[in-house]
Amino acid sequence: MISGFDRRRNVADEIFADEVGIAYGIYGEFRLRSLYQPIFAPRGAALAAVAVEALVEPHLAGRPSSAQAFFDQIPAGDRLFVEAMCRALHLRNYSNIGVEGLDLFFNFNPLINDHPGRALAEIRLMGRHLADFGLSAGMLVCEVTEQAADDALLLKLVHEMRRDGIRIAIDDFGAGHSTEERVSLLSPDIVKIDGAWFSELCRHAAAEKFFRPLVSTLHDRGAKVLVEGIEHPAHLRVALEGGVDLLQGFHLARPKLAGTIFNENPLAIEALLEPVGLEPAGKVIQLHQRR
């Protein structure tokens, strides 16, 4: 267990830059680094990168370690601080992706950010500094994670972000608390289909038949549909035939550390649909913890 943090410290005091200008955070013995995973949109016969999702990779003694294990051992009183540090890192490192104009997806956990005044203050502070990092509010997409949360608080936070121009995505639809009721409550701009749920759906012969009406229903509600966890050609085929707007997953591109050369070339759909060995025997499980 990581020992408790001094509550009087500011996030900015724990963020530094390496010799080439890549920002990293310090928490206890860990050095936190930004990862970005591309998100693609169909463009004719190709997939074009249109956004990235910001993730974090903890390093211990100079080596990457499990993000899930890292977050699981953070004391409850420090979790808001660490979440805020991760968001600050991702904003600062955005310019180190090396590609202009990509939207930036970031996560917001309503169970950790559960104090209305504090959460609203954090959102407003973030908005004031976006220009410093080459970002505008219209380029940001806040992913509301699937945990249960007070509906009144969620509505207030979503209203505040939308007022500033930030778009809203419901994460992991089909799992946990990301349901049609949550879609009706928040009227999100984007709905992210849970990767494990989608992988299980793709195991059925008539997957496209069942998936297409869901995508159509979400479109009718004014939301774009993003499928995460695209790990195999079969996943991509079902998603594309279902008419989704955005795609993300290891079969398309893995997360890369800030400062890594970003491949701007569109991906040929025909090549991605070619079989690459045996299809998975079970569910696809996410290999990283999003923050």
Rank of each mutant, 00 (worst) to 15 (best):
C202K: 09
P275H: 03
I39H: 02
E228L: 00
A205W: 07
I193V: 15
A271H: 10
G4F: 09
M85S: 12
A45L: 10
A23G: 03
A239V: 11
I190E: 08
E181A: 14
A61N: 14
S3G: 09
S216N: 14
T260V: 07
P75D: 13
A17K: 13
R9V: 10
A84Y: 01
G242K: 08
N109Y: 10
E160V: 02
D72I: 00
H177S: 14
R118S: 12
N109L: 09
I22W: 00
Q286K: 14
E146A: 04
K209V: 15
L218E: 11
L154W: 04
V56Y: 00
T217F: 11
V238F: 01
R79S: 06
G277E: 04
R162N: 10
M1D: 13
A54S: 15
I26H: 11
L240T: 13
R31N: 05
H90Y: 01
V56W: 00
P58D: 04
S187K: 13
V215L: 02
A137G: 02
I230H: 01
E14T: 13
S184K: 13
F106W: 14
P116H: 03
C86P: 08
L201H: 09
I269E: 07
A51V: 12
M139D: 01
F262P: 00
L32D: 10
E200A: 13
H288A: 07
A45Q: 15
P280K: 09
A51I: 10
A23P: 01
A239G: 08
F210Q: 14
Q289N: 11
K283P: 02
G282Q: 13
R9I: 09
G259K: 05
L130M: 04
V183F: 03
F71N: 09
R163G: 10
G98F: 08
V158P: 08
C142F: 05
L287S: 15
L157K: 08
G28D: 12
L267S: 09
E181S: 12
R118C: 05
A281R: 13
V244P: 03
V244K: 02
H159E: 15
L273K: 12
T145Y: 00
D245W: 07
R167F: 06
P110M: 01
H90I: 01
G243Q: 11
E143Y: 00
E14K: 12
L226T: 05
Q286R: 15
H129M: 11
A281Y: 08
S216W: 11
E264W: 00
G98E: 07
A46Y: 14
E228P: 04
G176D: 12
F71T: 14
F81R: 12
N109P: 00
I15P: 14
L214G: 02
V99C: 02
L287M: 12
A41Y: 04
L226S: 05
Q286W: 09
L226I: 06
L60C: 08
Y27I: 09
